[in-house]
């Protein structure tokens, strides 16, 4: 009798084991969804809404695989570079035409209906209608131009590989090299850990350059002399976050700065002295909260502004231009 009971119990246990296996195989959860070692930037990305002074008013969807750069001319035409081409939108945000390129442009600037493109280590010049005018001699073979700006006398190209600003005249003659590391002149040089090296020309025709590794923006004279700089490293909104920021910036007509920081994916507005004025936008939506394997590389690939002071951000993740206007 006792033996029968033991056998019965054993067999019930055996059935139990089989049921456990069955249940785990067909109904089991693969693993729990909590991550004990999670790296979370959400708290830092949360921004007090009173600090946000811009509204996103329009988005323009782009039909490109990759988007690299954006600029706006004095007639409010928008130029977007990416995918071996440049797409041009007029001020009604309608695509007017496309310029096919031999290879992809990393950056572009427009002045007086002439397009200046940074392609690899050289500059190419097109008319705004797409006629190729010239290809300038490259500074050296290893160069890589990440940003370009132009005014009526100069073309400045930021070369991330050479860690210097190349100053050309409008005909492509190299005038001088700005900011190159030089111990004799006690120039520390730019610290550029990744291929982000931006510059801009202010309304007063002053050259401003981002030095991301030092978390600062520097003002140079035409001759390449240091004039002034500002910026501190901080995860707080007052400074620039992470190892190397800001990676993109543009300047408004009143001399204030619009900066974008990778990592925290935020666009901020600083006044002429560099003091934080307010936040333009912080990309902290539900999508960003999800695990994001595209986090390597920045979300915004370029910033631009029009004459009305609207801010245009080229969202590389969603392949959109997001337009922000002051509240």
């Amino acid at each position: 009798m006792k033996q029968k009971l033991v056998i019965a119990l054993s067999l019930i246990l055996l059935i139990g084991v089989i049921f456990l296996i069955y249940n785990d195989l067909f109904n089991g959860n693969p693993a729990d969804s909590t991550n004990a070692t999670e790296y979370n930037l959400e708290k830092l990305k949360q921004i007090d809404s009173s600090l946000i002074c811009y509204n996103e008013v329009i988005t323009i969807d782009l039909t490109m695989e990759s988007v690299n750069a954006l600029t706006i001319d004095s007639n409010s035409n928008i130029y977007v570079a990416g995918d071996n081409e440049i797409q041009i939108f007029d001020k009604t945000l309608q695509k007017t035409h496309t310029i096919k390129l031999d290879s992809s442009a990393n950056c572009l600037a427009v002045f007086d209906n002439t397009l200046y493109l940074g392609v690899g280590n050289y500059v190419e010049v097109y008319t705004s209608k797409g006629v190729k005018l010239s290809r300038w001699k490259s500074f050296n073979s290893k160069g890589y131009i990440t940003s370009i700006a132009v005014n009526k006398t100069n073309v400045y190209a930021a070369d991330a590989e050479n860690k210097a600003i190349l100053r050309y005249n409008l005909n492509g003659v190299l005038l001088n090299v700005i900011g190159k590391k030089d111990k004799d002149k006690s120039i520390d040089g730019f610290i550029i850990p990744s291929m982000y090296f931006d510059l801009a020309i202010s309304a007063e025709n002053e050259l401003w350059v981002a030095n991301p590794g030092k978390h600062e923006l520097i003002n140079f004279t035409e001759k390449g002399d240091f004039r002034t700089s500002w910026g501190i490293a901080s995860m707080q909104t007052t400074g620039f976050a992470g190892c190397c920021n800001p990676i993109h910036f543009c300047m408004l007509s009143n001399g204030s700065f619009v900066t974008f920081e990778k990592g925290l994916d935020r666009i901020k507005l600083h006044d002429q002295t560099g003091k934080l004025e307010c936040i333009v936008a912080s990309f902290s939506d539900a999508n960003a909260q999800a695990l994001d394997n595209c986090s390597i590389g920045a979300r915004v690939h370029d910033l631009a502004t029009d004459l009305q002071g609207n801010i245009y951000a080229l969202d590389a993740k969603d392949k959109k231009i997001r337009v922000f206007s002051r509240k």
Partner: peptide, 17 residues
């Protein structure tokens, strides 16, 4: 190293990955 990938994420977010 336990392979948790925390630093990987941090490096990817701010640095070069």
């Amino acid at each position: 190293c336990i392979g948790c990938g925390k630093c990987v994420k941090g490096c990817g977010a701010f640095g070069n990955g």
